[in-house]
């Protein structure tokens, strides 16, 4: 993983761990998607609501942050929230 992607993964990890009740269950991985680098976030199923937030506002805010980082790095990162741990 390159340094930029490591930083983006760390960013999503730091945010997710602060939001959930079970930070140890936060897993963030990055892979090359078709149009962007995909950052995949999975959390304990009981914590999904904390990542999504009221009316999806929290997830939207994480995406806004990724958008800003993408702009600075000149490379697109998108967030994928896994709804199930399978």
């Amino acid at each position: 993983m390159d340094r930029d992607t490591e930083a983006v993964v760390e960013l999503v990890e730091v945010i997710a761990k602060a939001l959930v009740d079970k930070p140890d269950d936060v897993v963030v991985e990055a892979f090359e998607g078709r149009h962007s680098r995909v950052v995949e976030l999975s959390v304990d199923s009981a914590d999904i609501g904390k990542i999504i937030g009221k009316k999806g506002r929290t997830a939207k805010s994480i995406r806004t942050l990724l958008g800003a980082v993408s702009m600075k790095l000149d490379r697109r990162y998108t967030l994928e929230i896994l709804e199930d741990d399978d």
């Binding site: 945010i15 904390k50 937030g53 929290t58 939207k60 805010s61 994480i62 806004t64 942050l65 800003a68």
Partner: peptide, 21 residues
């Protein structure tokens, strides 16, 4: 400047995430 783009989108996102955290 980045923080205030799109009607302060990033500023509001940071606020939202901090209040949630």
């Amino acid at each position: 400047e980045l923080l205030l783009r799109q009607r302060g989108e990033l500023l509001l996102a940071l606020e939202q995430l901090t209040l949630e955290a």
